[in-house]
Design a protein around this nucleic acid. Structure first.
Length: 139
DNA sequence: GCCAACGTTGGC
DNA sequence: GCCAACGTTGGC
C-alpha cells in the first residue's frame, strides 16, 4: 500500500465535491513527474487531499479505485488519469503552516516542491497527518 | 498582485 | 546541447 498527496483548487474541485460525486476522474495533469506518480498508484492506495490557492490545508483522505489509464482530456501527448473516491473528511483540516512547523512533516514533497500536484507520501507522514487531523480511518 | 521556483520552448 | 526567454503554479 502506498500513500500519495493530490492537490486541487477548492473552487475548481473541492473534497466536498468529491464526497458529493462519490467518485471522480483525476485528469488534466500535464506534468511528467506528477503523471509518473499517478502511474505508480495501485488500486486501494490512499491519497491525502490538499486544497491549494484557497484553504492551503489537507482536508480529507481519498482512495484510488482505478489505476492509470489514458487521460481522455489529452488531445495530444502521453498523459494519464486515475479514478478516486472519498474515504473520510478530516475532523480537523491540517494547514500547510502546521505541516511546515512539524519537524517530521517539513520534508514532505508538498513543502519542498510546492508546484508538484501529485506527490508520494511516506507511511509515517500519512499517519502523522491523520493524527494532526484528529481522524482515524474507517474500518 | 507579486514573485520565487520550476518546466518548457526555441534560437543558436 | 546549451541557455535565455517565457509561461505556469502556488504561497505569501
Amino acid at each position: 500500500m502506498n500513500y500519495w498527496l493530490m492537490k486541487s483548487e477548492p473552487y475548481v474541485y473541492s473534497f466536498d465535491d468529491l464526497v458529493r460525486d462519490g467518485k471522480t476522474m483525476w485528469d488534466g495533469v500535464r506534468n511528467y513527474q506528477a503523471r509518473n506518480n499517478m502511474r505508480a498508484m495501485k488500486k486501494g492506495d490512499l491519497v491525502l487531499y490538499y486544497h491549494s490557492n484557497k484553504g492551503l490545508e489537507i482536508v480529507g483522505v481519498a482512495r484510488v479505485v482505478r489505476e492509470a489509464y489514458p487521460d481522455p482530456t489529452a488531445e495530444k501527448g502521453d498523459w494519464s488519469a486515475v479514478d478516486i473516491e472519498p474515504v473520510v473528511k478530516l475532523n480537523k483540516p491540517v494547514p500547510l503552516k502546521l505541516i511546515k512547523q512539524t519537524p517530521e512533516l517539513s520534508r514532505m514533497q508538498l513543502v519542498r516542491n510546492s508546484r508538484l500536484s501529485v506527490s508520494p507520501v511516506t507511511p509515517e507522514e500519512f499517519a502523522r497527518i491523520l493524527e494532526l487531523g484528529e481522524t482515524t480511518l474507517p474500518a
